[in-house]
Amino acid sequence: MERAAYERLRWRSIRRGLLEVDIALTRFLDEEFGKLSEAEQQAFAELADYEDLELWHLISGQAECEDARLAPIVAMLRKS
């Protein structure tokens, strides 16, 4: 991912309404994001566009991800 696109994604991931999501996505970007394939990085970017509550419900296991492309990233977010 080129620098500006990554930085934009980073800002959108770590400046959220909910602290829980801020922390979970910061950690994921710092520790896991670099290891992902381009398609997986794209899937993460799509998830980062979700509303805060929606995303938190997915990460905390209160909801299941119905999009098969995004579900593996959700699983990784839960573990990280």
């Binding site: 959108r12 400046r15 959220r16 309404g17 909910l18 602290l19 509303e51 805060d52 509550l53």
Partner: peptide, 12 residues
Amino acid sequence: SKVFPTRSHTVA
């Protein structure tokens, strides 16, 4: 706004 409006901390 630094973020999209519906991502403001009021959401919490």
